[in-house]
Amino acid sequence: MEVRTIKVFTTVDNINLHTQVVDMSMTYGQQFGPTYLDGADVTKIKPHNSHEGKTFYVLPNDDTLRVEAFEYYHTTDPSFLGRYMSALNHTKKWKYPQVNGLTSIKWADNNCYLATALLTLQQIELKFNPPALQDAYYRARAGEAANFCALILAYCNKTVGELGDVRETMSYLFQHANLDSCKRVLNVVCKTCGQQQTTLKGVEAVMYMGTLSYEQFKKGVQIPCTCGKQATKYLVQQESPFVMMSAPPAQYELKHGTFTCASEYTGNYQCGHYKHITSKETLYCIDGALLTKSSEYKGPITDVFYKENSYTTTIK
């Protein structure tokens, strides 16, 4: 009895394709271990004539594949690729409408935090270190965002349907971005203890939790000093293409032309909904596939993004 075979390709990165001759009487799992086709788990399936010449994702289970996976995804987590594939199996079914010149995501599976993050990423200057993220990001900007969303979920250790947080998501993504040249110098002034300067680099240099107003941050924000008295913390120097200011959701007025974009969060910790506000020729609110415009805006804002380049204080 002759062994019926077909020729397929296996890959971990969709760049390096490895030619395989597979036995049609055995499952993919018996031949390769966990195997995925377009995100779908085909591990328990036997090869079919229609699979001839198709590319299958496999887990990096030998040295060659491990090197290829690390170079593309910059992670050695053995569960990463499987999590990416199972997320992709959902995100490829989502709709990605162009809204006001940006790629958004039609609401499904509690994905409003991903839509808000995706919209924000198209408006701030950011370059990702893992080629996987950078490639998928370019495709997302062009309207094909399924891979990018699935990668975000995998890097953030999230599953489809789980509630997510924009600030946490951005923080994970910033860790995989090139923020080497970003720098922030802060000064804390206390009447009792004097003053202390701190220099922050990388992710810490672009994120701040405690106030939404970048102007206020430049002037000074009140913080408790270690001595128990009130101290003032203010920005001395900022070198970065953008800054992200966050605070627990509270009524906040966004003035046209003073910011790049913002995240609105309605609801409580267990259950809520994100919308995205962007400042173009007027203010726009993007909620999944829905767009509304207004000249002014007041609502429960939790993150505001500002364009920056270089700032030095005039406070002496």
Rank of each mutant, 00 (worst) to 15 (best):
A140N: 02
K93C: 09
K54V: 11
L59E: 15
T91G: 03
P249A: 02
C149G: 04
I15G: 05
T199Q: 09
R167N: 05
K93I: 06
P60A: 11
I286A: 01
Y297K: 03
H90I: 12
V304M: 03
H48C: 12
A150C: 02
I315P: 15
Q122I: 05
F9A: 12
D180G: 10
L283R: 00
F32H: 12
G143E: 03
Y284I: 15
L173S: 01
L102M: 12
A40W: 13
K92F: 05
K293A: 14
L283Q: 01
Q175W: 06
A146G: 07
V22M: 11
H51C: 07
D38K: 09
Q197C: 09
T198E: 13
Y28R: 05
D303A: 01
T43L: 06
A117V: 12
C227P: 00
Q238V: 01
V42F: 14
A150D: 03
N89L: 11
I15T: 12
T55C: 10
Y57E: 05
E168K: 08
G267E: 15
E162A: 09
Y214D: 01
L254A: 01
Q134A: 12
T43Q: 14
N16P: 05
L119C: 08
D303L: 04
G272N: 00
L59C: 11
L200A: 10
P131N: 01
L179Q: 02
S310M: 15
T314E: 10
P47H: 01
G299K: 01
C225E: 04
K106T: 14
S50W: 13
S279W: 04
D109Q: 13
V188E: 06
Y96C: 03
D109L: 04
I277S: 00
E296I: 11
Y265P: 02
N268I: 07
E71V: 05
V8T: 08
Q251S: 11
E162P: 00
F9M: 13
I223C: 15
L65R: 09
T199S: 09
T278N: 06
P131Q: 05
P300I: 15
Y274W: 03
R167W: 02
L59M: 14
T278H: 08
E264V: 11
P300Y: 13
G53S: 12
Y72C: 07
Y297H: 07
D38V: 11
F305S: 01
D41Q: 13
G288T: 04
M244A: 00
K307E: 09
G33M: 02
I124G: 04
F148L: 12
Q195H: 11
